[in-house]
C-alpha cells in the first residue's frame, strides 16, 4: 500500500494537468528504508512528448546525488498518461528499474489541463511483474 499526504497527491495531479498533453514525471523522495514519501521533486520530461517520458540524464545524476547526500531514496516514481488509462504500459514495465519504488500513474485523459477528477493509481513493478496496490491519502 502507498500512503501519501494529500498535499503531495494534489501537487502530483497539478503537475500532470499543467504539463498535459505531454507526460509529466517526477519522484517523491523519502528517508532510505522508511517507505515514507516526503519530498516531491518535479522533473522535466526531457522527451517532451505525449507518449514518452524520460528524466534528463544530467538532472537525474544531480537528483540521485542530492538523495544520496540526504540519505534518501525514490519512494515514489510518478508519471502521467495523457490519452490512456493510469496503468503501466509495456514500455513502463520494461523500463521500470527501481525495485523499491511505488510507481504512480495519473491519467489526464478525461479533463486535460482543466479541473476535474483524475485516475490516480499505484503499482509495484519488479522484474516485469506489475502489482497494483491501494493508495491511502493522509490528511
Amino acid at each position: 500500500m502507498l500512503k501519501l499526504d494529500r498535499e503531495i497527491r494534489d501537487a502530483i495531479v497539478a503537475h500532470a494537468k499543467r504539463d498535459h498533453p505531454d507526460e509529466a514525471c517526477g519522484i517523491v523522495a523519502g528517508p532510505e528504508g522508511s517507505d515514507t514519501a516526503a519530498r516531491l521533486v518535479e522533473m522535466v520530461n526531457a522527451a517532451g512528448s505525449p507518449t514518452f517520458y524520460e528524466f534528463d540524464s544530467t538532472e537525474l545524476l544531480r537528483l540521485y546525488r542530492e538523495m544520496d547526500d540526504n540519505d534518501e531514496e525514490p519512494v515514489v516514481v510518478y508519471h502521467s498518461h495523457t490519452a490512456t488509462e493510469a496503468y503501466p504500459s509495456r514500455t513502463d514495465t520494461d523500463l521500470a528499474q527501481e525495485p523499491n519504488a511505488h510507481y504512480v500513474l495519473v491519467s489526464t485523459r478525461e479533463h486535460g489541463n482543466s479541473a476535474g477528477p483524475v485516475e490516480f493509481r499505484s503499482y509495484r513493478i519488479v522484474d516485469g511483474v506489475v502489482t497494483e496496490e491501494d493508495v491511502t491519502i493522509q490528511e
Partner: peptide
Amino acid sequence: VVILPAVAGGC
C-alpha cells in the same frame, strides 16, 4: 564512475 538506470517510460 556512477551507473544510474534511466527513469523513463511511455504509453
